[in-house]
């Protein structure tokens, strides 16, 4: 399945689903983007303890399936954990889903979907 050019030509943004600190930091780096007014969409979602899992799920679907301009989706690992099923099920090369650590939740390689596959391939 060689990726065709059409699959990623338009992809130039990063998206993020994360806690407030992660999102703030990444926005400071300049990844934040809001699409044109008629149906303006943000490419980031701030998740706190009150955020419903269904909302995270919806944002994940939106960034991975519906929007065609996202190249990389960054998601905090502890949030990915809440929708682990969807993250594990998502196997397309685009957008690349990347689990990142957050301030309160250090990175645990054991939980990462991709790293799990890497480990499995090496038979560990």
């Amino acid at each position: 399945m060689a990726a065709s050019a059409a699959m990623y030509k338009e992809r130039q943004f990063l998206a993020v689903i994360g806690d407030e600190d992660s999102v703030t930091g990444l926005l400071l780096a300049g990844i934040g983007h809001v699409t044109e007014p008629p149906d303006s969409q943000r490419n980031f979602l701030v998740v706190d303890s009150k955020t419903e899992t269904s909302e995270i799920e919806r944002a994940f679907q939106n960034f991975t399936q519906e929007r065609k301009d996202i190249a990389v989706l960054l998601i905090n690992q502890h949030i990915a954990e809440r929708i682990r099923h969807s993250v594990d099920a998502f196997a397309d090369p685009f957008p690349a889903v990347l689990e990142i650590p957050s301030k309160d939740h250090p990175y645990d390689p054991e939980k990462d979907s991709v790293l799990k596959r890497v480990r499995r391939l090496f038979g560990e």
């Binding site: 992809r11 130039q12 943004f13 926005l27 990844i31 934040g32 943000r42 701030v46």
Partner: peptide, 21 residues
Amino acid sequence: DIGYQIQESAKQARFRVRTKQ
């Protein structure tokens, strides 16, 4: 907390990626 302010003022992505083969 500057989080809210940052989120509201983000409009255009400065940091972007392009893909090469």
